[in-house]
Design a binder for these strands. Structure first.
Lengths: 135, 135
DNA sequence: TATTGTTATACTCTATAACTATA
DNA sequence: TATAGTTATAGAGTATAACAATA
């Protein structure tokens, strides 16, 4: 009966993926959300923290704490925007880019373990069905 | 690029479902995990706490805390097994059964909001694809 | 007035480790 | 020795509220 609930199945899948991520990515020190921040900042240098919060469905205050640690580790830096001085654009440092490359490889290996269980069509389908939940 | 990651999509879906659950079930006081415990205890009266932990992918110590609160609210009770005196079987109280019925209705309404977005075939497919991740 | 970022704070959720009582 | 349950504890992860600076 539990197995028929969408919420139960999504939660079990999420827990499984999160634990495997922790075991195989960044020696357990990089969380999925932090990885996402790095990826987004690389794709869109100078991205605002509010926008990260929106894209990751977090409160902006939570994002601040995450970036504090990333900045402390020298992987990103904040730069005040000259156009809108309220904004602190986020940039991945050269060291961060290097680290990100390693992380991406680890994430790929981690994901592959699960993607292997599907055909390409099934993966595309699964992703698109999941997006219908949160989009 | 993030959108192509299985982990990202599952996480976003899970967060969306969990927030909606909190808004629509048990006045925000019942968490998904707690609901699951009630359902499992109803389906299998006297179920052991270790087994709940296993089925919900939690540590047994975490289950103890959850059941403490359920017991405090009078929704379940522990009864020492006479066959194996280490075991504390879990039983839903009459009051708990009443409450569970309400919760089930609320969960159904909550789930329906999302299930509406799919055809029956798609739902079955989504669930079966998700199970391949955690089974 | 609204928005960006920040700080301080508190709460929830979970695991770990060490323990007991039973087996 | 192993298992079921418990306690104490600590560490995450997050949100809320109040604030400063800027628009």
């Amino acid at each position: 009966m539990l197995q028929s609930l969408l919420g139960y199945n999504v939660r079990r899948a999420q827990v499984t993926l999160a634990r495997d991520f922790q075991q195989h990515v960044g020696q357990g020190k990089i969380r999925p959300v932090v990885f996402c921040i790095l990826v987004l900042a690389e794709a869109q240098p100078g991205i605002a923290q509010v926008e990260l919060a929106r894209k990751l469905a977090l409160d902006k205050a939570s994002v601040v704490a995450l970036i504090d640690r990333l900045e402390g580790a020298g992987l990103v830096e904040r730069r005040r925007s000259t156009l809108d001085r309220r904004r602190q654009g986020l940039f991945v440092t050269p060291q961060g880019l290097l680290r990100l490359q390693t992380l991406k490889d680890e994430v790929s290996r981690h994901e592959r373990q699960f993607l292997e269980r599907y055909s390409p069509v099934e993966i595309a389908l699964l992703v698109s069905l999941l997006q219908r939940i949160y989009e």
